[in-house]
Amino acid sequence: MSEAVLILKEVGKTYTSSSEKLTILKNISFSVEAGKIVVITGESGSGKSTLLNLIGGLDTPSYGTIEAGRYQVDALREEELTIYRRNVLGLVFQFHYLLREFTALENVMLPARIAGNSRSEAREKAEALIADVGLSDRREHYPSSLSGGERQRIAVARALVGEPLLILADEPTGNLDEGNSRMVEDLLFSVVRKHGKTLILVTHDSQLAQRGDQHYNLHNGELLCV
């Protein structure tokens, strides 16, 4: 049995406003082994994205602990969270969020440059990943001249360039048509498997869930193993 790269213990998230207390996540506990693909499904508003945000250090849990690699995420300060995101995570969002001032290649290079790779090193990695997502001929194009599917494929390459321990994908095909969705899904799974990465994918597409190594369903803030 391989080592767990992510361990959540009794994690909960509650938002408190002046009038009410809203519980999003209740006592979530699970662990993910290195190289596995975990798919979390659930209805809209079930807390899937909140769970990913907690793992990604973009939000803090109300209680419980999250361990990713050698980091205890819930206890990290802002500067430490920056290092955690830089060294451990690769993020793919529902929207591609590519920087409009950078070419596809430069967008992919960016996390590697942020992580301190030299320009040539970052370029080499980015070119290989762009080749993996089948967009070598489009690498010098700006996001504005790429299709929706191409942008999302570039976003997948960008998530992998920093050689992260953990890739978090939040509805990565949510904005795409069916044809593009399938293509990006196939690509995401194949690239992640090729590079032996750990993926946590959040989706409301139960069909997609079948392709993962582990499948969880979030319902009423509780995580159920399917």
Binding site: G56, R86, L91, L99, L110, P111, G162
Partner: peptide, 8 residues
């Protein structure tokens, strides 16, 4: 950029 690991 911050979610990609850029610091404040």
């Amino acid at each position: 950029l911050k979610s990609l690991g850029m610091s404040g």
